[in-house]
Amino acid sequence: MGIQIRNVSKSFGHFHALKDVTLTIPYGELVALLGPSGGGKTTLLRIIAGLDTPDSGSVILHGQDVSAKNPKDRDVGFVFQHYALFQHLTVFENIAFGLTVRPRRSRPSKEQIREKVTALIRLVQLENFIDRYPCQLSGGQRQRVALARALAVEPKILLLDEPFGALDAKVRKELRRWLRRLHEEVHVTTIFVTHDQEEAMEVANQLVIINEGRLEQAGTPEEIYHQPANPFVFHFIGDVNSFNWPGLEEKETVKSSGASAGPHLRRISVRPHLLKLSLDPPEGNRLAGRILHIIPAGPYVKVELKTEWGDSIQASISQERYKHLDLKTGMEVFIIPEELQDFEGSDAG
């Protein structure tokens, strides 16, 4: 077992950052802690690293209870959101830091340090920046220095707090792929915090969804996307439309209640790509909407609509379908959900 977190709770004053979190992360995984900002992800990461102590519960790393151990004795590498590079040290010195602070007995020789740091610099592709200072590097380069510095001490676990949060979109995408490759190469159990679900899905093998201090769901990206455990996860992962739908049992309802003035409405949730748009009225229940705006750029065409019951929704349709229907702003269309999520009658709105 890699990391076990047992019944961990933590509050700051009256704020409950974590509420009874229990979680197991297998050895060698690449895991994303995903959730809205302020949900407790970073606190959990800091507790694993030993930078914060939980009010209750325990942390077991590789079969050993480390709850009472200092951060320096946990074999954990921690990378901060803003990298926290040592400004007065060069790239080389930053990466070498963890090796040079070891007690003399276990400290590698100068030659060994040089060898090791050079290898790491090659791994993070910064060969030409060895003698630069952090202020002379770009955001992505700084992030890679921070990673190499954490890896230099050969941690058993690597913890990354919003590793791409401070980078612009393009660098971010590059670094995501790079982090995956790096993980395949060094294979150290890695947990990273993110609030970006796309990032989490793309990089991690395992997702852990945390919201308001609670563990909502843990599983593979596929499981979490297709079998969300609760309304929160369903709404948090991927885009979701929630709107009033003239109930499936409309006919029966109307029949049983006699002459009803309007159809029986219920609230449903559907992902944008599972909404079909049609010009012809469908069989059975009908929901009409007016097209407010069309965004045709991209692999899918995004159509923003207002339903006859006043809900704003967005549908993603293929380019072919868009051309076939010849949609225009202001047109009236029928909205047909192909699949809807129901949490045992709970209102997911």
Partner: peptide
């Protein structure tokens, strides 16, 4: 952040003060 990084890299208090 700098100090906490140094802690996680294994530095002692005295090393953190002088070197970070």
């Amino acid at each position: 952040d700098n100090e906490e990084t140094a802690i996680s890299l294994g530095a002692g208090s005295w090393q953190i003060f002088w070197r970070v």
